[in-house]
Simulated scan of single mutants.
Amino acid sequence: MLDLQRLKALHAVSVHGTVGAAAMSLGYTASAVSQQIAKLERETRTVLLERYGRGVRLTEDAHRLVEAARELMTIVERAETDLEERKGTPTGQLAIAAFASAARGLMPGVLAELAVRHPTLDVRMSEVDPHESVDLVAKGVLDMAVAHDWDIAPLPAPPGVEQARIGDDLCDLLVPRGHRFARRKTVRREDFDGERWVCQPPGRVCHNWLMGTLRTAGIEPDVAHYADENPTLVALVEAGLGIALIPRLGRGPLPDGVVAVRLDPVPVRHLYAIWRTGAARRPAIAEMVRTLHEHWPRAAEGTPPIGR
């Protein structure tokens, strides 16, 4: 009989593309995942992974097993949902992803409260960008994701995925204290011609929003520096190396050398909880969504607005 955990390991490799990334998503070591797949190869007397450059690729037989794994994981999820729903209590394991600033500014309080209120619920969080997390939920790798989109770049909604709006996160223009915008109450997009920027790398939602917004205003962005984390971007602004558009959630207090200026119109990103339709009846899903809603007002107020 095929072992479900070994099938899950193969499924994770198919989703993430490498044994190392699959291991990270499952909370295992790369060696453990390789051993699981080696055992599955022995059980099936089939080659499942082939060397390809510095990585691996799945054989045709492996792809067939991955499809079977998806079906089995769906059946198991349905059984777990039915059992949890009958008990009426959030329980079991819940794998959730959150983008960086939500993981920092929203999730600690949410996870701490759930741990106290529901000790039989084992929530495991990973920091994952929305471009990846929504797809991972749709594929069954994650149970939930806290994701975001921008007013001009809606979040894609794959089939079989549901979402709930958590709240709206406002975004400010951050400039060095001696910058020409520092004493202004508001700045418009048309004022940005000739400015140097610091922002997240290409492919990130925030980067795509900045590129689209400035180009719509007829300005080709001059990005001098890229960084993944907002605190790094704030440090680059403080050093006078560029200006940045950074949301308030999880940003923390600004250093004395950085000034927040209101952009007109104010950029807004929308936060969502995402889960699969098949798991919608799980009390754990409902409780996570409720707790996210409950904590959002405090998280949204965590960073002082402009003028404070």
Rank of each mutant, 00 (worst) to 15 (best):
M1T: 11
M1D: 12
L4W: 03
R6L: 07
A9M: 06
L10T: 07
A12N: 08
H16G: 00
G17A: 09
A22V: 07
A23Q: 07
G27S: 07
A32L: 14
A32S: 11
V33S: 01
Q35N: 13
K39N: 13
R42I: 15
T44R: 13
R51Q: 08
G55V: 02
E60V: 02
L72S: 12
M73G: 11
M73S: 14
T74E: 15
V76E: 15
R78V: 02
R78F: 08
E80C: 02
G88W: 02
P90G: 00
S101T: 04
A103K: 04
L106P: 11
L106A: 06
A112R: 12
E113L: 00
A115Q: 12
D122T: 11
V123E: 00
R124A: 03
M125Y: 08
E127L: 13
E127T: 12
E127S: 14
D135Q: 10
L136S: 05
V137M: 09
A138L: 02
V141S: 14
V146G: 02
A147P: 05
A147L: 06
D151V: 13
Q163A: 12
D169S: 04
L170C: 08
L173P: 09
L173T: 01
V175L: 08
H179F: 13
H179G: 06
R183H: 11
R183L: 13
R183I: 15
T186C: 01
T186K: 03
F192N: 02
F192R: 01
Q200D: 13
Q200E: 15
V205D: 08
C206F: 11
W209V: 00
M211W: 14
G212L: 15
R215A: 03
R215T: 11
I219D: 11
D222G: 04
V223G: 06
H225S: 12
H225K: 04
E229L: 13
P231R: 08
L236N: 04
L236G: 07
G240R: 09
I243P: 04
A244H: 10
L245C: 13
D256C: 03
G257N: 10
G257A: 10
L263T: 09
D264Y: 05
P265W: 13
L271T: 01
Y272E: 06
A273C: 14
A273Q: 05
I274C: 03
R276W: 07
R276I: 02
R282Q: 01
R282K: 10
P283L: 00
A284E: 00
I285T: 09
A286G: 06
E287N: 00
T291P: 03
H293T: 04
E294T: 00
W296P: 04
R298G: 15
A299N: 10
E301I: 04
R308M: 11
R308Y: 10
